[in-house]
Design a protein around this nucleic acid. Structure first.
Lengths: 194, 194
DNA sequence: CAATATACGGAGGCTTCCTCCGTATATCAA
DNA sequence: TTGATATACGGAGGAAGCCTCCGTATATTG
């Protein structure tokens, strides 16, 4: 009793889809920066000039939206890893990259609790975007190990977790010097003693 | 136009107050363990057999309740610090205590996200109960430094933060081995190289 | 210019938070 | 004991956010 069985799939996705997605990311970046990562999603939607339903269609979970917002920034970090590995001695490259990671957290510290949510949740930033930060830190650590002066018996990502722990735990404070010193402490701990 | 100006303050607080407080803590311990630290406070109240108003009167913020729930456990850690310092060589005492801290997180991992909330918030566990864990870890670190084989240029509490970072970030996983290795890594990093 | 696959919007049901204030009760003085 | 009253209790209800659902609108295609 069907009038028509055919269903011809669209050739390309509709234009408004991509446009709204972009708007939502921009709005989220702004709103999260202003009110923290726990900001109302309804607010993000209205800031973007779209309905709440549209937001949820594009980003089913808050995490997904946050990841999209940070994608660009993490891309920058990934690029930096490549650059450092090409230009620096391996251990120094790792050290500098970890310091960049500290800066990354610092820049976005407005949403420190956002990061916390991300990191703490079941879909953590660092495992949600494994191709991203994970592969970078792993490559850096590999390089350092190959020098023979370096050892590590934890997951490379745990380095980031430790740093994030030092940083995120105190949203308002000046945690940054502490985080920097933690980087050095970690490096020292991984250096093979002579 | 007052009928009576006198106001005679009670000699001792009412009995029901303390009783309800105890009930609330017990209920919270149970509910948090079962449903995670984000569990509804209304649920805690009803489990305790008191009204929601009573809960809020006793514990104005979720943090305060969480802290009360953990008070006993952290007390245990504080005691352990004293014991270890008396019985062990300083650096070893620090190491063992950090491992106990890992266990502490592990035991309560049901509420891992609770810890996260606590730690991430503006009223963090470790600064909310400074007399507790803070003074313990500081004393341990002091002892280690006095041996002359040890140095540290970060806040002692940052050690806990790093460990918590490694642990809390992955609620469901088997993070414990990683955390243990992180303890050793940190210790190595603080050991003065020869 | 249909026809129709896609996408949008936002009302509404649900949950939790937290305050406010009328009611109940423990304590004390006489 | 008993009345007075300082204290504490309870829970209704307003506010806010989450997320789904489905009728409506629109981009795209032949």
């Amino acid at each position: 009793m069907q009038k028509k069985v055919s269903s011809q799939p669209r050739a390309r996705p509709r234009a408004d889809k991509e446009r709204n997605r972009a708007r939502l990311i921009a709005a989220a970046k702004q709103v999260f920066a202003a009110r923290g990562a726990a900001a109302s999603l309804e607010q993000v939607a209205s800031e973007a000039g779209v309905g709440i339903g549209t937001l949820y269609r594009h980003f089913p979970k808050r995490d997904v939206l946050l990841e999209a917002v940070y994608r660009q920034e993490t891309d920058t970090l990934v690029d930096a890893a490549d650059r450092l590995m090409a230009q620096q001695e391996p251990v120094e490259a790792l050290r500098e990259w970890l310091l960049l990671f500290v800066d990354f957290i610092d820049t976005k510290r407005d949403m420190a609790d956002a990061l916390n949510t991300l990191i703490g949740g079941p879909e953590p930033l660092y495992s949600g975007t494994p191709s991203h930060l994970a592969s970078s830190i792993e490559a850096l650590v590999d390089g350092a190990i190959k020098t023979g002066t370096f050892r590590i018996d934890i997951e490379p990502l745990d380095l980031l977790r430790a740093i994030a722990g030092v940083a995120n735990i105190r949203p308002g404070q000046n945690w940054k010097p502490s985080a920097i010193r933690m980087v050095d402490l970690l490096i020292r701990g991984m250096q093979i003693e002579r």
